[in-house]
């Protein structure tokens, strides 16, 4: 668990102890640290795919990590278009990956 964390660093020092919190991504529970963004928390647990392209259904993850590209947008507690890279993970947060839209939604204009 959390093997992706940089616990020791020769210049920045050891990672401070953080309070552990629970977040949920597509219904599955993950442990995150207080101070994590949604993107860093999920990557620390090895989750790379955050959404699927609305039309082409291709998987997507973080790209710019500073809010410019909108590739990492997820649904958080029902709110759409939340950038995982700019949003702090909070205890009990419910996060959903954005899925491809069905053909009727794409053509029917219910975007």
């Amino acid at each position: 668990m959390n093997s992706m964390r940089v616990n020791h660093h020769p210049v920045l020092g050891d990672l401070e102890t953080h309070k552990e919190i629970k977040i949920y991504f597509d219904g599955q529970e993950y442990t995150a640290y207080e101070g994590d963004t949604i993107a860093s928390a999920l990557l620390a647990s090895g989750v790379r795919t955050l959404r699927f392209h609305e039309d082409k259904e291709t998987p997507r993850g973080i790209y710019c990590n500073i809010g410019h590209c909108f590739e990492c947008r997820v649904k958080v507690d029902g709110k759409k278009t939340v950038r995982a890279c700019l949003t702090s993970a909070e205890n009990h947060m419910q996060i959903e990956s954005c899925k491809a839209l069905s053909a009727s939604e794409v053509k029917g204009g219910t975007l």
Binding site: T37, R60, I66
Partner: peptide
């Protein structure tokens, strides 16, 4: 566009700021 491809700055922030390896 595959997950796991990121800008170089994204990797820097992930490692140094969030302390998570890309």
């Amino acid at each position: 566009t595959l997950p796991g491809v990121m800008s170089i700055g994204a990797a820097q922030v992930m490692g140094n700021v969030h302390r998570v390896k890309p």
